[in-house]
């Protein structure tokens, strides 16, 4: 087998294994719940029978591994169980399927994430590469000072400052990003402007600094000096000599920051009351609605793992040592 295929398969299996362990951890969270949580969910007035029925519904009378496999089988088919909320002591069940809760919100979150990524990734790469090329110029220093401050700032601070200026003092954008399915595409973009801008500011700062460091590191390689001393033009040094070796670090930077974006979404959605999965998760945590928390956690962790996996695979398939084995 070509070593590159072997390495990629190894990496994929490792990713799969990680996903397995993560799902195990997320699943066992329900095991760790205190024994009386049935009452907590159903309320003080819950009768013995309703609590028992509730426990049976969750399958708590079966061994843990059986439930794990049932849960995974369900997840694979898109069934995340039923939300805890909407249940009452009387046994009346107005709860909804977790999937129905999550699906529309997932769409909204992805909308926000993709919109941000489309702005942030090219911008960050541009800033990172240009500051690396024009190191220690005024331009570099200004960009650096700005990004350093942004990094040290909590997302909600950035968000509220934007609200203060663009929604409150000058009403350019709405401060509440309450988008709905029925809205037009343009309307959605308009309403998501501030959350997206907040995320962009935070991500660009991180990503631009990482890109800059990776490029500087790369440009310090002896083979780049050699290329210059061969009289190769600056443009060609970057495109022909640096870039083919830069895919791995750049992919890592992008993946890391997209993963960061997924997490940053949580806080930003809460600030702007954006109806996404992050806000859903925070609400579920407050009400201890475990099935919803599990589904959200699985989504976030899965995205994170897949992004890192993709970055690693890009690193592997662009590595000349693996591409052209001895």
């Amino acid at each position: 087998m070509h070593p590159i295929v072997r390495t990629v398969i190894q990496r994929l299996l490792m990713g799969l294994f990680t996903l397995f362990v993560v799902s195990l951890i997320i699943f066992s969270s329900i095991e760790l719940l205190p024994g009386d949580f049935g009452e907590a969910v159903l309320g003080q007035a819950a009768t013995e029978e309703t609590v028992t029925a509730f426990r049976r519904e969750l399958g708590l009378d079966q061994p843990a591994y059986t439930r794990y496999f049932q849960w995974v089988a369900g997840v694979v088919q898109g069934d995340f169980g039923t939300s805890f909320s909407g249940r009452a002591a009387s046994g009346i069940d107005r709860s909804r399927d977790v999937v129905d809760l999550i699906a529309p919100r997932l769409e909204n979150t992805l909308f926000l994430a993709v919109m941000t990524a489309l702005i942030a990734v090219p911008l960050a790469l541009f800033l990172g590469i240009t500051t690396a090329l024009y190191r220690n110029t005024i331009y570099d220093r200004v960009v650096n000072a700005f990004t350093l401050t942004t990094i040290a700032t909590p997302e909600f601070f950035v968000a509220y400052i934007l609200i203060l200026f663009f929604a409150s003092l000058y009403q350019v954008f709405p401060s509440l990003a309450n988008i709905e399915q029925s809205m037009s595409f343009g309307e959605k973009i308009y309403r998501s402007a501030l959350p997206s801008l907040t995320l962009t500011l935070v991500i660009v700062a991180h990503m631009m600094r990482m890109t800059r460091a990776a490029i500087i590191n790369l440009l310090a390689s002896p083979y780049i000096e050699m290329a210059r001393l061969k009289g190769v033009s600056s443009r060609r040094v970057i495109l022909k000599h640096a870039l083919p070796n830069a895919w791995a670090p750049i992919a890592t930077v992008i993946a890391f920051n997209l993963a960061y974006l997924v997490v940053g979404v949580v806080v930003v959605e809460v600030v702007f009351v954006y109806p996404g999965i992050g806000q859903l998760m925070v609400d579920a945590v407050r009400t201890r609605d475990i099935p919803v928390v599990q589904a959200c956690a699985l989504f976030f962790a899965g995205t994170y793992i897949i992004l890192n996996l993709v970055a690693d695979i890009i690193g592997i398939i662009t590595n000349p040592r693996l591409l052209h084995p001895r």
Binding site: T18, V22, I25, I26, S29, L32, L33, A259, V262, V263, V266, M281, V282, A284, V285, R288, D289, I290, V293, Q294, C296, A297, F300, A301, Y304, I305, N308
Partner: peptide, 16 residues
């Protein structure tokens, strides 16, 4: 492999 904010949220939902 799990973002720590997400992990923290999950654990907090369990332990309060």
């Amino acid at each position: 492999a799990i973002p720590s904010l997400i992990f923290a949220l999950m654990l907090l939902s369990i332990f309060g």
